[in-house]
Design a protein around this nucleic acid. Sequence first.
DNA 1: CACTTTAGTTCATGACTCGGACTATATGAT
DNA 2: ATCATATAGTCCGAGTCATGAACTAAAGTG
Lengths: 393, 393
Amino acid sequence: MTVRTEPAQHAGMRASNLALVLGEVARTSPVSRAQVAAHTGLTKSSVSGLVSDLISAGLVQESAPAATERGRPATALSLAPGGIAGLGLEVNVDYLAAVVTDLTGMPRYHQVVRRDNRGRDVDEVVADLVELARTAARSTASQALPLSGACVAVPGLTVEGAVVRTPNLGWARVDLADAVGEGTGLEVDLENEANLAALGEMWFGGHEHDGAPLRDFVHVSGEIGIGGGIVIGGEVFRGAHAGAGELGHVVVAADGPRCACGGHGCLERMAGQQEILARAQVATMADLTRACERGDQAALDAVADAGRHLGVALASVITLLDPTAIVLGGAFATLAPWLTPATAASISHHTGAAEPPRLLVSGLGSDAAVRGAAGTVVRRVIADPAAHLARRS
Amino acid sequence: MTVRTEPAQHAGMRASNLALVLGEVARTSPVSRAQVAAHTGLTKSSVSGLVSDLISAGLVQESAPAATERGRPATALSLAPGGIAGLGLEVNVDYLAAVVTDLTGMPRYHQVVRRDNRGRDVDEVVADLVELARTAARSTASQALPLSGACVAVPGLTVEGAVVRTPNLGWARVDLADAVGEGTGLEVDLENEANLAALGEMWFGGHEHDGAPLRDFVHVSGEIGIGGGIVIGGEVFRGAHAGAGELGHVVVAADGPRCACGGHGCLERMAGQQEILARAQVATMADLTRACERGDQAALDAVADAGRHLGVALASVITLLDPTAIVLGGAFATLAPWLTPATAASISHHTGAAEPPRLLVSGLGSDAAVRGAAGTVVRRVIADPAAHLARRS
DNA sequence: CACTTTAGTTCATGACTCGGACTATATGAT
DNA sequence: ATCATATAGTCCGAGTCATGAACTAAAGTG
């Protein structure tokens, strides 16, 4: 039922099959050419030709023949770790970060610069980010890894390479993609931090559902604000104006107080960090965690209450989107031991679903977004190797 | 970023281009071959060949040459009204319905049988539906219209041709697709009534956004229950287990009473027909409409209150899904004059969105789902004409 | 050491689309 | 009238790419 918009030509056929083969290699490596042929439905001869293109492009490598049961041993194919790499960057309220990931998803460079960026001059922060990116690029070059591009995680709404607004950072109309692109010479994309965290969690979080990686889930990131990333069929769901997934502003109390967003009774207003800290009567998240650990009742009550509100929001998410799992990330991951019991109870109190989604806890912490950003770059090459071949020829 | 799963072969290339050309003809008819070539990016010679296949398959027809500015006049192409047709069926709480639609979307047969199907023997109702389908098929045959298939709208959850559960009809595990298929000799699909109503509204409702048909919206159908259909990029969004879009069970009152679904404070429990009628102290929806028309305060209050609750649910839908519009259908369309002011106010009270989606009212009434069902069948042929060519050869 | 089994390559065949040459049919200028 | 120009559509040779069968390669088995 998909509306087709592009003509199918011979080049497109080859591009599609290159992607098919490379995707198979990425998913189940090591594999032989014969296995790829069997899994994809292509013939052995076609696969041979396609693979030789991918090898000469440096995206796939052959390794030592592995003996099979009988017959001629298969030459194993896998993604080439030295083929290309992707640069992930992140601007956030209290840190800047950079990560370089190779084709296999392995991190090859990692740097975090902690500093409160609220109130700082925007140009200064951008300059810091560009410097961080250039250092990462130099390190990558010294490893003889060509960078394919960069992706920046931003805690707010982005449209076509520009930051439109970031509620908790106070930015508006910043041409961040251009700035980083000029500073590094790379193609740069911008994307919402919550969406990238969700993707990072999918690719690198190690969660599984029925033996396969999660493909339909909602990722909740409790940073200063509460963000949400919706992943459907392995892809981020953005809505009509790239504003989808704003879990923090789902209504959890119809008669609730006014939120900074202009609405009333939003989840973020009722269960955001500010509210939890105030109710627990502590100053920082670290203090809150310590208070919970020593069994402080005010802290435990504040967290449980936030968990209940979170459950109300998630109940609506579950009935509307029917995901297979919910992943709690950011501060919610840290608070999970005291938060999730209340959340799970609240979800089941508010839904009648026969098959409730699983409630998982993120293992990546605050790295999820940068790693997702770097992953986005290399995944793009895996999804369309023909474009990469065309660029380097 | 899409994961490719099928090899691209020559036949697939042609199939894709047939769909591309037919889609162009469907979208902008009448068109000339030259225009199709310009819009699709295919060459004139390829388009000629593809069009001649589509004409000999009876899907496209040539009409009289229309004079252009200069040069040789173009032969106009359009969808053939006599090519194929789709049968849409609907089982609902208080009626059965059948509609036949030709390729152009024009209804060629329409029949509704009103009768309360609650409590009736399931086999009897199925037999009635099959009889309705056979009568429709006979009428279609007498018009020399070949039926391509059928689609049944069901007020509940369906999985692979079987009804899993219908809360308001009390059915469970009914192999409806098989029953109708055996009775008519057609390929039969089952689909949720709310989803089909949303599609019907998109294809036949006449709504527009920026000059183009709506492609990202949420359709709310207020029948006995409250259903929701989410359309994203022109396609129904189903979620991981086909359970997405259950707007009726979004939480609108965290401390609300228990709902029939097992949850608490669901929209349907707070603003469903049962609740509205009870609060307005009238017996039927017709009575309610009359009461509203003559300005009865209890009725007006009951409807406004439902509108407020609906607004809370829609506020969450808007922040989560970011649609371009909300379409109110079913009973909500009838009650729109008294309902929408409260709903719109409630939405803006609970969201801080800069660009609130438009709140539209359905023009199709309770026909939306059957027409959507019939449309689904013909759209499938338009989206994949190669499959149709293969079947008839 | 022949036989079987599996992996991967080679090459002729065929199904496409492309692109340019060609025909058809109109309008407008001379 | 006649020619130039513009546009629609067809025809056919050329090029691209997957297929499928025959072939080579490299192991294990009896």
